[in-house]
Design a protein around this nucleic acid. Sequence first.
DNA 1: CGCACCGTTGAGTTACATCAACCGTGGTGG
DNA 2: CCACCACGGTTGATGTAACTCAACGGTGCG
Lengths: 252, 252
Amino acid sequence: MVTTLDLIVGCHPQASCLACRTRDHSICAYCRPEELRQIEAMRFFRSFEPRQTIVMDGEVPDFVGTVLTGTVSLTKIMPDGRIQMVAMLRPGNFLGHPYRAKSSYNAVASTSVVMCGFRRKPFERLLRKIPELGQGLLEQSSNELDAARDWMLLLGRKTAREKVASFLIIFAREKVTQDPSLMKKQIYLDLPYTRAEIGDFLGLSLETVSRQFSAFKDDSVVDPDGKRGVTVVDYPALLAETGNDADGGWLA
Amino acid sequence: MVTTLDLIVGCHPQASCLACRTRDHSICAYCRPEELRQIEAMRFFRSFEPRQTIVMDGEVPDFVGTVLTGTVSLTKIMPDGRIQMVAMLRPGNFLGHPYRAKSSYNAVASTSVVMCGFRRKPFERLLRKIPELGQGLLEQSSNELDAARDWMLLLGRKTAREKVASFLIIFAREKVTQDPSLMKKQIYLDLPYTRAEIGDFLGLSLETVSRQFSAFKDDSVVDPDGKRGVTVVDYPALLAETGNDADGGWLA
DNA sequence: CGCACCGTTGAGTTACATCAACCGTGGTGG
DNA sequence: CCACCACGGTTGATGTAACTCAACGGTGCG
């Protein structure tokens, strides 16, 4: 029997991880069929609704896992309520730190999310048995570190305009790398965030985010639809507004 | 024969890694004497002068390694010259990403630095042979990721005053954890940075950094000596100025 | 219908950057 | 030896980018 979840995930839970669409971009990338079978025996799927919190800051999560579909956002909150987003996990990315007890951030599903999870302790055992998993985990961690550092440059030194351009480029580039011909066409993006959340992402108020969107619209660079949709009208122009040189950063 | 380098490092190069003072906080922490012997055979020491650059952005470094003494700063530079520091490596921390070619930041020695290094390729081979090294590396990476995320909250959401307080607390806490009685005493800090560099650290101009130092002096919280030295007069007060709740972050 | 939520836009404020002057220190070379 | 300069730190005056407060419109939902 094929369930909705199966369709979303792209494989039947009882089928092999071999069929998993996101495997190549996940911690399982280096695993061979033999190891995948061991992993398969312990994994389970969990799905989350938009705005549902997955892990709370300070909490000891009993599960870790890979995002299969949707977007998970990691945020930090100051005692007085100021919020900063500190990571955006997309399909293939891993949530949780093995060997670490408390979480140091909130993890919230920004869209509908399906994850391939493991209970923490058994996963740690698995990790000791399968060094390839460790390599995958290290690679994930290094990628996130790179992203975090690009993000730090953005937060510390970029103008509001550059921040918003950089934000949009992250999503646009994802599509452009899939289909390079898009670079010269219009690119429609369905952002997983509200203006307020984009503000939390960029260290801006929601009003300035909105104003920058309007400014780019006036300059015929992007065309927001008043909701979460934006179409990038002039990709090269937008890229030039980020303050980076051509290939700069993120998931580069 | 014991050289100056030996004294700094705390062990003779020809002696065992067992004598290494920073081993417990490094990627070697999980290695057993047998593995340490393998590592020993490949490591070499390198020292750097203050302000000497270790790796350049875009360059392919042929060496990776652990900081033994001093402070190494990782910075990113925008095409127009804006600078943001993105990591501060202290003794025990690892510089470089195995399996990654190009560096995505500049690494500069902020003080005199001694590193325990490896050529990149042989290190990658070592890494495959010794899974414990991988675990150490993963832990380092996770720690840096945590630090980077605290830093992102700082850059995105904190005021100049909170930023400077947080900056000072990083160094003060290091001493306090060594000797908790210091918490109620005056703590002298020899910062490895100029005001301009602190600005690059915090995403501020050097002038506002200076002004915040003066403001804290007026409030009898710290007492800068006009150079790189500062004595923290009231540690709890400084802590309260960071905007975090008591235990908040960094190398916590 | 009424309400909650999201986005936009305007007016006024402010925290920080920028520009600029000044001081103390240490190094260098005449 | 001292004149000179480069460098780091401090402080003041001024400008401005972004925040805050506030009002208003559209959309979806109970």
